[in-house]
Amino acid sequence: MTTVSDENKAQALAAKNQGNDLYKQRKFDEALACYEKAIELDPTDITFLNNKAAVYFEQGNYDEAIKQCEKAIEIGRENRADFKLIAKAYSRMASCYQRKEQYVDARTFFQKSLTEHRTPETLSKLSEVEKIIKEKERKEYIDPDKSLEEKNLGNEMFKKGDYPAAVKHYTEAIKRNPDDAKLYSNRAACYQKLTEFNLALKDCEECIRLDPNFVKGYIRKGYALLATKEFTKAQAAFQKALEIDENNKEAIDGYRRCCTSSTPEDMRKQAMADPEVQSILADPAMRMILEQMQNDPKSIT
């Protein structure tokens, strides 16, 4: 450990304070010279290196700022600096990587900063970077060709009456092409077969949001609402479908059912009487899947 005289420490502190004043005035070159003088006088103080890194950061010289942060951490460890100062160096490194759009590295160093000292500011920055990474991964995962493959597999499973498998394929298709309204409609059809009407309704809403003129979305929404006792809303959904296609038989039948005020219990009994549904519910493994889907819809993804 290097020993520094009190006189040198005092002169170094004065140089740092002068640099801080210049930094606030955005006179970065002059501030940098002051911080370098402070480091010369007292090479054991992590603060001077952190401040020097801050100047490079403001100048947009992120690679040099990172180098100074690495030196700051090294000097700080050697001289048992306050963990808050080491955390600050890690956080500034992370910010440099964020500016360079190297988000994985940014996440790593924000996390390292938090292991030294947790602050709301660093937590917020980490959260922001994690959102960027997640969205980037989501976009990179999009592949319309693979989405079509999964959709076709879902269609095959649907025709076979294997609705849980169809849901899984449609879910993967959605991940691969999240802006295809028909995929949500297809998955909603599976949920309706499985009497998971709330899940079907959510998919219908997303389908309609993506394509407000897709008549099938309104029809499936109407039937999901009928099953959840929302008769007025169901009637409005069928009415919207008829505005798009006034001769649509499914929409006409659904609208009439709203007018006759069939009870939800009757509708559920009718759904449960469907031989396909009865076959599924007779299988203990399928019942377990349905219970899992009801308790945690995300478990199927």
Rank of each mutant, 00 (worst) to 15 (best):
N152G: 01
R77H: 15
K168N: 04
K168P: 03
A72T: 10
P164T: 10
Q111W: 04
G76K: 00
Y163G: 01
A106N: 06
I132V: 15
F48D: 01
K112Q: 13
T44R: 01
Q59I: 09
K84F: 10
P43T: 13
S147K: 04
Y163A: 10
S91R: 09
E74Y: 12
V167C: 14
S124V: 06
C69Q: 02
A53Q: 05
P120T: 12
R92C: 12
Q111N: 08
D145A: 14
K67W: 02
G76D: 09
P120V: 10
N51L: 02
K125Y: 11
V129H: 00
Y103S: 10
K151M: 13
Q59A: 05
S124R: 13
M157P: 00
E137N: 13
D143P: 00
P43M: 12
L85K: 15
L114C: 09
L114F: 03
D63S: 13
T171P: 05
M157F: 14
R107L: 12
H169C: 15
A65I: 06
I75E: 05
D143E: 07
T115W: 04
Y90R: 04
K84I: 15
E128G: 08
V167L: 11
N51G: 06
Q111H: 08
N61F: 07
F158L: 14
R176C: 13
K125C: 08
I86S: 07
E130C: 10
R92H: 09
N155C: 11
E116L: 01
S91F: 05
Q111F: 11
Y90K: 09
Q98I: 03
A53G: 09
Y97M: 05
L123F: 00
T115F: 07
A72F: 07
Y90V: 11
K71L: 15
C96W: 00
F110Q: 03
A54S: 14
P178G: 03
K88G: 01
T171W: 12
Y97D: 04
N61I: 12
S127W: 02
Y163H: 08
N155R: 05
T171F: 06
Y141P: 02
A106Q: 05
I132D: 06
E101L: 11
K151Y: 09
F109C: 08
D105G: 10
Y97I: 08
Y90M: 09
L148S: 06
T108W: 00
S127E: 14
E101H: 15
T122N: 06
E149L: 09
Q111A: 11
V167P: 02
K100N: 05
D145E: 15
V104R: 12
F158S: 11
I142Y: 02
P120C: 08
H169Q: 10
F110I: 05
V55C: 09
R77V: 13
E116Q: 14
A53R: 00
F158R: 01
D45R: 09
E137K: 11
L148F: 09
D180W: 07
V104Q: 14
V104P: 02
N51P: 07
Y56T: 06
R92D: 08
A81L: 01
K84L: 12
T119K: 02
K168G: 01
Q59P: 07
F48R: 06
P164L: 10
D180R: 11
I46G: 00
E121V: 10
N51A: 09
E78T: 13
A173H: 02
R107W: 04
F158N: 02
A72R: 04
T122L: 00
T47F: 00
K100S: 09
I86G: 06
K112T: 08
N51F: 03
N152I: 12
I142W: 01
E121A: 08
T119V: 02
K100W: 01
